[in-house]
Amino acid sequence: MQGIKIYDVFDNGEWIGSYTADAITKLYKVPRAMIMAYASSGTRAQRRYTFASVMSIEKGSGLDKWKAEWDRARLKLLETGGNGN
């Protein structure tokens, strides 16, 4: 089964959050196909972002539904500045 990976994201060495590859692509414009390669090699994306794989959730484990809801809510908060509008 294919899983969902969660990555820690660092901006010039400063931790800024933990995200799925889809969320990283939306928020930081890093190609989804490159995120795992950046995490494996330690290479910086856009000369500032580094990634570390922190968790893998197997599809069908029940956590994938939680992950989708978490991403939806988190992205909405980030887009609206937390005011819910």
Rank of each mutant, 00 (worst) to 15 (best):
69 E>Q: 12
41 S>D: 07
83 N>C: 10
56 S>H: 06
27 L>R: 15
28 Y>H: 14
26 K>H: 12
55 M>R: 13
29 K>C: 10
10 F>S: 08
20 T>D: 02
7 Y>C: 09
45 A>G: 07
29 K>Y: 11
40 S>L: 13
71 D>L: 01
78 L>C: 01
14 E>H: 08
65 K>I: 10
5 K>N: 12
29 K>N: 15
55 M>G: 03
13 G>Y: 02
50 T>S: 15
15 W>R: 11
49 Y>M: 05
43 T>D: 10
75 L>K: 03
42 G>T: 07
2 Q>Y: 02
30 V>E: 00
4 I>W: 15
11 D>M: 15
71 D>Q: 15
44 R>K: 15
71 D>C: 09
53 S>N: 11
34 M>L: 14
84 G>W: 10
85 N>G: 11
65 K>G: 05
76 K>F: 13
61 S>N: 06
48 R>F: 03
54 V>L: 00
26 K>Y: 12
24 I>Q: 06
8 D>A: 15
43 T>I: 06
21 A>E: 08
84 G>A: 10
69 E>D: 14
5 K>A: 12
55 M>L: 13
31 P>N: 02
27 L>F: 02
21 A>M: 02
32 R>L: 14
66 W>N: 08
24 I>G: 04
33 A>N: 08
6 I>A: 11
44 R>L: 12
58 E>N: 08
60 G>L: 07
38 Y>A: 04
70 W>A: 09
62 G>K: 06
64 D>G: 03
65 K>A: 11
52 A>Q: 13
43 T>F: 06
66 W>L: 12
3 G>Q: 11
27 L>N: 04
60 G>N: 01
72 R>P: 05
20 T>Q: 09
